[in-house]
Amino acid sequence: MKFLVCISNVPDTTTKITFTPDNKEFNKAGVQFVINPWDEYALTRAIELKEAQGSGTVTVLNVGEADTEPNIRKALAIGADDAIRVNAAPKDAYFVAQQIAAIAKEGAYDVILMGKESIDYNGFQVHGMVGEMLGIPTVAPAMKLDMSGSTATLEREIEGGKEIVEVNTPFVASCQQPMCEPRIPNMRGIMTARTKPLKVVEPVGEGARTEVAEYALPPKKQGVKLIPAESAGDLIKLLRNEAKVI
């Protein structure tokens, strides 16, 4: 079975977010980039399923410029077999989805996995766009994925519960916890990752459909009003009479 795992290159979760002086772009200076945490579930689960099946391949796909290659190598070190990088900045979800759909179609992948969303743009869009472009089902967000032959059983999170869904390959799923325990690279993985194939291709399709005009940071808080622990009950009065939220 052929797995395609889509990863994005995002600022580490501890990053303090700042922007370029015109507020049009994220300021990358001094920022550590990581594999999007949600994508780690997709990657590890694909590797686990391949191992359980005893055959198949896991290909990792990233839409990004050359500076994303360290994290692509990391995905190879974790256990993907080969990688494809589409040589373009990820302009918007639609642009990225077109690249994934084109590669998924050309490579006839059976299972296309990605994280629920990227922690930078938080679009939660690419999964459905790829599914629609390929005319195949999408399950988002998936908390559990098991395969039996060409049939997958997934748990989809819905507000207040979950749905058990069965789909046949090919399909797209966007993954989140508690699907698996994401793996970290071991020394042997890091050594072998250096020689695994990483193919660079140029982007296809139309451009983006959305454009960021300006980024802004949330307004700063005015400062905390402290209430002595002994008179904790006064907080409730303040929440009712001053903040008017209860």
Binding site: I17, N122, R209, T210, E211, A213, E214, Y215, A216, L217
Partner: peptide, 14 residues
Amino acid sequence: GAFSGKAFADVVLS
């Protein structure tokens, strides 16, 4: 909302 609640983005829908 963007950057997981750490920022906002004004987005033009063409």
